[in-house]
């Protein structure tokens, strides 16, 4: 059997703050296969970034993993020591962040920062590391790479800095690249450049990508599989086509209805009512129930289980259960007639 590269099993991450325990990630499980692009989409506070930070084990205090496993090639990295994690990060799994302005160190040159990762994780000497840094900059399409190696981050534009971040993340050929809102801070045309670059590098180097974003457009463009998160839980998952053309969770449906379309004439947007749920005060049932148009009694009291819609699609919504019952009832009626 082919084991997935990364298995996240029932992961829980909490932040203990004054007002109580914030369960930012509340028992999520997913698999990532080699060379696949997985998209995690959700609004602010849905726990998508915390999921990424948990996998990298770079949670900021008071955040900690309170339960579950993260298996990388069968090994549970939650149990790794600090030293093991240092070796794991950058070499096996790399991350690029949203803001390329703040994720590079302003007092070191680009070359210095690129070499650091290479020297740490490979047995290249200084000169070879320099050559590798140059090669990486060329690969990510930075113009005049020799000159850039000697420059500081503030001398580069936002798009260039994000390219440098990608070069740094990929310098040691990781198996997984986590991209946490990699293009949110960039302009549309630069965003298109960076997404195209990530796609071509993915084909060339064959790493798996976890793409975290709130932008459904970016997800549609990039991903094989999509996970939709709301309030720390996965509400729906499936292939891109299934999620966009056959959404089966009320939240996903609402999201897709609320974005303006380019091709459509002027139709009124249908927003999702209410505001995001308060994570310190989570409701007993489905977290989305208070904003849902089709909320039923059971939604308020019980958490919906994940139901298989088909081979490529799962959703946690009571509406699907209701549909199954309704269909069965309709069939019975037809039979009795």
């Amino acid at each position: 059997m082919n084991e997935p590269l990364l298995q996240v099993k029932n992961l829980c991450t909490s932040f203990n703050v004054d007002s109580g325990e914030v369960r930012a990630v509340n028992g999520i499980s997913f698999n990532l296969d080699k060379g696949k692009v997985l998209g995690i989409v959700g609004e602010s506070g849905s726990g998508k970034s915390v999921t990424a930070y948990s996998i990298m084990r770079i949670l900021v205090e008071p955040g900690r993993i309170t339960g579950g496993q993260i298996l990388f090639n069968g090994e549970d990295i939650v149990q790794y020591s600090k030293k093991q994690m240092r070796e794991f990060r950058g070499k096996r799994v790399s991350i690029i962040f949203q803001d390329p302005m703040t994720s590079l160190n302003p007092v070191y040159t680009i070359g210095n920062q690129l070499r650091e990762a290479i020297l740490l994780h490979t047995d290249r000497n200084h000169e070879q590391a320099n050559a590798r840094a140059l090669e990486m900059l060329q690969l990510v399409g930075v113009n005049e790479p020799e000159k850039r190696l000697k420059q500081y981050p503030h001398e580069l534009s936002g798009g260039m800095r994000q390219r440098v971040m990608i070069a740094m993340a990929l310098a040691c050929e990781p198996d997984i690249l986590i991209a946490d809102e990699p293009t949110t801070a960039l302009d549309v045309t630069i965003q298109a450049q960076i997404l195209e670059l990530m796609q071509s590098l993915q084909k060339k180097m064959g790493m798996a990508i976890i793409m975290i974003t709130h932008d459904l457009g970016v997800i549609a463009d990039m991903c094989d599989e999509i996970i939709v998160m709301y309030a720390g839980r996965i509400c729906e998952r499936g292939t891109a086509d299934e999620i966009f053309y056959n959404p089966r969770h009320e939240y996903t449906k609402g999201l897709l209805r609320s974005i303006p379309r380019l091709d459509a004439g002027h139709t009124r947007l249908i927003p999702i009512a209410g505001s995001p749920v308060d994570l310190t005060n989570m409701p007993k049932g489905c977290a989305f129930a208070s904003r849902c148009d089709n909320c039923m009694k059971i939604c308020l009291s019980e958490l919906p289980e994940e139901l298989d819609i088909n081979d490529f699609h799962k959703a946690s919504c009571w509406m699907n259960v209701k549909q199954v019952y309704d269909e069965a009832a309709a069939e019975k009626e037809a039979d009795s007639k």
Partner: peptide
């Protein structure tokens, strides 16, 4: 033209078939 071709469209089919007009370099 480039700006419009770069808009990420939340529709996988359009995204797959669409031709981008890439813009080289920075502002």
């Amino acid at each position: 033209q480039s700006l419009i071709s770069a808009i990420p469209i939340p529709d996988p089919n359009t995204a797959r078939t669409r031709q981008r007009i890439p813009l080289e370099g920075d502002v």
